[in-house]
Structures are given as C-alpha cells and as structure tokens.
Simulated assay, not measured.
Amino acid sequence: MRAALFAIAGLGLAPAIALAADPSCRDQAGAEQTARYVAQCLAVSPATRPPCNEANPCALIVDEIKRGCALLTSGAPDFCKTYPRR
C-alpha cells in the first residue's frame, strides 16, 4: 500500500489524496452553512461537474464560488459581493 501511495504521488496525484483526507464541509461548518455554500456554488459554477458537494472541504467549495462569481461580468447574484475577487 505504501509503495502505491508513493507511485501515485509520483504521478502528481498527491493533492487529490490530501483532499480526500480533509474533513467534509458539513463536518467543518455544519449543515446550515454547508447548504448555503453548496447552493451558492451551484448557482455560479460554470463547471459541468463542479465541486459543489458537502463531502468536499469548505475551502474547495468557496474557491469555486469565488471563481464562478469572478467570471460573471453582469447579473452576478448579490452573494457574490461577499466573496472578494481573486
């Protein structure tokens, strides 16, 4: 198993393994805040398979919200004002 992890890390997949070990957003922020993040993420993400899932770390979801809000030049939801542009 350890050899397999080193082999995966050599392929550049180590960050994916690190993300899998991070606590879920629901564990980090609770059900109510997580539901808010997920709804906002789904509202602005242009991705076909966005990371807007409560099982992901909050930082990943919030980064996708920031990215989606930054891409909207007009008609951005009001909540985008709470996420500073990158």
Rank of each mutant, 00 (worst) to 15 (best):
R2W: 02
R86T: 03
C52K: 02
R86P: 13
E54P: 13
V38P: 00
A47W: 11
R86H: 10
P51N: 08
G30W: 02
A20N: 07
R85E: 07
P50K: 11
E64A: 07
L13G: 15
R2I: 02
P51T: 06
I17R: 01
A29H: 06
A59M: 10
M1C: 06
A59L: 10
D63T: 05
L5R: 12
P77H: 08
T82H: 11
R36C: 01
G10Y: 01
F6L: 14
T73N: 15
A21L: 07
L13T: 07
E64G: 02
G10C: 09
F6S: 11
N56D: 04
C58H: 04
S74M: 05
S45E: 08
I61C: 08
A35V: 01
Q28T: 06
C80F: 09
L13A: 15
R26L: 05
A31K: 10
L11C: 12
A3Y: 01
A43T: 02
L72R: 03
T48P: 05
S24A: 10
R2E: 03
I65W: 14
D27L: 15
A3T: 00
L60W: 00
L42R: 11
A3D: 06
A4D: 04
P57R: 10
C52H: 09
A4T: 00
K66P: 01
G12R: 04
A14T: 02
E32D: 12
